[in-house]
Structures are given as structure tokens and as C-alpha cells.
Design a protein around this nucleic acid. Structure first.
Length: 309
DNA sequence: GCGATCAGCTAGCAAGGATC
DNA sequence: GATCCTTGCTAGCTGATCGC
């Protein structure tokens, strides 16, 4: 094949078709009309000597050749984007851009809200869209450009994504100020007798790794409420005699209403990473946001002290 | 609802001629 | 030889339409 005759726009078209599996949706994605994209597909078919996509019940199914091209094509286009975007100068004080960040309610409260305010001071033209993280769909959302950056635990990050550790988190024990059970020191027996509220992001679960640690010691705590967000946990603990183990960063600034103690048993903490797609790796604006987030996460004040039990 | 095709339109490009 | 203008061709677009 003579590369001088190759229309590189057709490779972008093929990439969009492989992502969307539909001529109409690929056309929408590229801001072209459906006939224009259909014609480009016809030229791709002629160029590669393969049907590339065959009609199926809903949309188009890629042929083995098209599927085989998907990964190397995506990598090549990402490299091309790197070449172009890294050459573009980026000025946070003047440029206008939007970044879509996916994270859990914990990460949003513990890190991203303050980060958003700090970032806006440096980049007034910046728009930030905070979205709920869905680990199962994350890679596809990033591939489509719906999500630029995700902040989550490493087990939710697909191998194909790039990632970097932001910080380590630990759990603290919380109860409302004036809780009658905490007039005496908190030991394991009292810890297990108290009524707990825990987080189950997918809903319905009443056990966490803490319960496995307790189980190994032949102990059991009473989980009375399972909530879907950490905010609900904080609210319930502040308004009742329920207690909870909660990531330390969640209780920053709540010392007036809450007592924060070290847990009476070793509770494994967790790491928070940021993840991004190869397509954004070289983009100057995206890179700036990632660098600022990394610096912010490592500088952000973390409640290091807990009351003595 | 979807992809493919057609007719008509526009923009870009190469070739050829005129002018300096 | 360089530059400018005209002309014809081609690629690619859109809206309309067809068949599945």
C-alpha cells in the first residue's frame, strides 16, 4: 500500500466505527452525516479489501480483520494525539476547557470538592464535571471521551488504563459527641456491642473486611444499618447512637459534632489512585489537571490525630 | 431504526494559457 | 521562469429516498 495515498481521516473513522459499532452513531461522534460516514466506510472497505463490518440486528458487527486492527489502531491514534497535543502550548490562566472526573461520594467529599475550588482559582476558564464512578463502565466511558479522569481504588481500574497512586487512606472510629457508651475507654467488647452503620456502595451488604478480621478473632459486631454513601453514614452517626468506621478524610472539619477515635482493632486501609485513558495521556490540559491533582492529594491536610480511646 | 445509495452542490487541486 | 487566472475534474458533503 502506498502510504502517500492513504487518507488518515479514514483511520479516525475506523476507530469511531469500532468504538460505536454503528454507522449512525460513529457519524454523530465525528460530526458527520450518516451518508458521509457510510461513504468513508466504503472507501475503507476498498482500501483494506475487507467488508470490515457486517450488518447485525442492531448496528454493525466487526469482521475479524476489523477486530484485529482495533488495539493497534487505538494505540497509533493515541500516539498521534500525543504528538499534536504535546506541541500545543497550554495556559491554565487563559485557556477554556472542560474536564469530566468520575469518583465515589467519598473521593468527591474527601478530595475533589476542595481540589475543584483550588483549581478554579488557577484556571478560571476551567469547567469541571464531577460524576459518580461506575467501575464496570469506566473503560468504555473513557474510550468514548465521556470521562477524562477517574479517582478510585486500584481494584476498579482496568489494565488498559493508565494510573497513578494519589494517597493512602486509613479508617477511624466515629460516634456523636456525648455518646453514652464512650464515657469509658473503647475496647473490643464495647466496639462489638455498639450498633454500627456501614457503607455498601452497591447496596444491601452488611459485612466489610472489618467483619472478616473480627470473625478471625471469634468476634462479631452489630451492623444495624447499611447505607449507600459515606455522607449518609456521617448524617446517621451525628443524629443517633449509631457508630461507624469511616475513612479519615471524611471527618475533616466535623470534630465539633463527632468524636474521632482510633479503631480498637487493626483495620486495613486502602489506596486511592487516579486513572486515565491513553487518548488523554499527552494532552497538555489533561496532563496539567493530573499534575495538579497529584500535588493537591499529597499536600492536602489529613487528620492525623485521633482522640485516645 | 438502520445502512446504502442517489442527485445536487461546493471546495480543492492540477493543468493550461496569458502576462510580466 | 514566476505569477496569476480560468477551466475541468474529483472528493466529499447534505438531504432525500430506498430496502431490510
Amino acid at each position: 500500500m502506498d502510504i502517500k495515498r492513504l487518507d488518515f481521516n479514514l483511520l479516525v473513522t475506523l476507530d469511531a466505527l469500532l468504538a460505536e459499532r454503528s454507522v449512525s452513531r460513529a457519524a454523530q461522534r465525528l460530526n458527520l452525516s450518516q451518508p458521509a460516514l457510510s461513504a468513508q466506510l466504503a472507501r475503507l472497505r476498498e482500501m483494506l479489501g475487507d467488508p470490515l463490518f457486517v450488518p447485525s440486528h442492531r448496528g454493525m458487527t466487526p469482521t475479524p480483520l476489523a477486530l484485529g486492527l482495533q488495539a493497534p489502531l487505538a494505540a497509533a491514534l493515541a500516539q498521534l494525539r500525543d504528538v499534536v497535543t504535546s506541541a500545543r502550548a497550554f495556559d491554565p490562566a487563559r485557556d477554556e476547557f472542560t474536564v469530566h472526573i468520575a469518583a465515589s461520594d467519598y473521593v468527591q467529599a474527601a478530595l475533589l470538592l476542595d481540589f475543584t475550588l483550588a483549581l478554579r482559582r488557577e484556571a478560571p476558564g476551567l469547567r469541571i464535571a464531577l460524576r459518580a464512578a461506575d467501575a464496570a463502565r469506566l473503560e468504555a466511558q473513557m474510550e468514548k471521551g465521556e470521562i477524562d479522569l477517574a479517582v478510585l481504588t486500584p481494584d476498579g481500574i482496568a489494565d488498559a488504563l493508565r494510573s497513578r497512586r494519589l494517597f493512602e487512606e486509613r479508617y477511624v472510629f466515629i460516634a456523636r459527641r456525648g455518646h453514652p457508651a464512650l464515657r469509658r475507654p473503647l475496647d473490643m467488647k464495647r466496639f462489638c456491642e455498639l450498633e454500627h452503620v456501614m457503607v455498601s456502595p452497591r447496596g444491601g451488604s452488611f459485612t466489610t473486611p472489618v467483619d472478616e478480621v473480627l470473625d478471625a478473632q471469634g468476634l462479631r459486631r452489630r451492623v444495624a444499618v447499611s447505607a449507600s454513601t459515606f455522607h449518609a453514614v456521617l448524617d446517621l452517626v451525628e443524629r443517633s447512637d449509631l457508630v461507624a468506621l469511616i475513612p479519615a478524610r471524611m471527618v475533616e472539619g466535623r470534630a465539633v459534632r463527632l468524636r474521632v477515635l482510633a479503631p480498637p482493632l487493626p483495620v486495613p486501609g486502602f489506596a486511592i489512585h487516579m486513572a486515565w485513558h491513553n487518548r488523554n495521556h499527552g494532552d497538555a490540559a489533561q496532563r496539567w489537571v493530573r499534575e495538579r491533582l497529584l500535588a493537591f492529594a499529597r499536600e492536602a491536610p489529613l487528620m492525623k490525630k485521633t482522640e485516645p480511646r
